[in-house]
């Protein structure tokens, strides 16, 4: 099967993730959308690995997964810390640096 449908699906998922990051206010949902974008790029990596016939793309996807796992752990810990001090998970509320 041609890789183009996979790439189009990957592009669509990435765009939906971008849209979510731009539109949503809840920090946790924004974070989920970032995860969706990472997953979409992984799909492109795996598709290109199959197209080029070597496994480097899969290795890249694997590294993205590892880094994403670390990022989720730290990011959620930060969200929890912010929630603990401000009782809110909205990205609009953490604006003290502006002033």
């Amino acid at each position: 099967m041609s890789p183009t449908p996979f790439l189009v699906l990957s592009a669509l998922l990435f765009s939906i993730g971008t849209l979510g990051v731009l539109v949503r206010r809840n920090a946790i949902v924004v974070f989920m959308c970032v995860e969706l974008m990472l997953n979409a790029s992984n799909l492109a990596f795996v598709t290109f690995a199959r197209q080029h016939g070597n496994l480097d793309g899969q290795i890249a996807a694997f590294f993205v997964m590892v880094v994403a796992a670390a990022e989720v752990v730290v990011g959620l810990a930060i969200i929890m810390t912010i929630f603990r001090t401000r009782r809110s998970a909205s990205v609009d509320d953490a604006s003290l640096l502006k002033y």
């Binding site: 890789p3 592009a11 669509l12 990435f14 971008t18 849209l19 539109v23 199959r50 197209q51 016939g53």
Partner: peptide, 30 residues
């Protein structure tokens, strides 16, 4: 944001549709 997201999706998909990716080698050998 919705407009920009839609624009982004259209640009990405349109760009991908114009690319020819060549023959699929497949991972049977790797």
């Amino acid at each position: 944001a919705i407009a920009v997201g839609l624009l982004f999706a259209i640009v990405l998909v349109a760009g991908l549709a114009q690319v020819t990716v060549g023959a699929v080698v497949g991972l049977d050998e790797a």
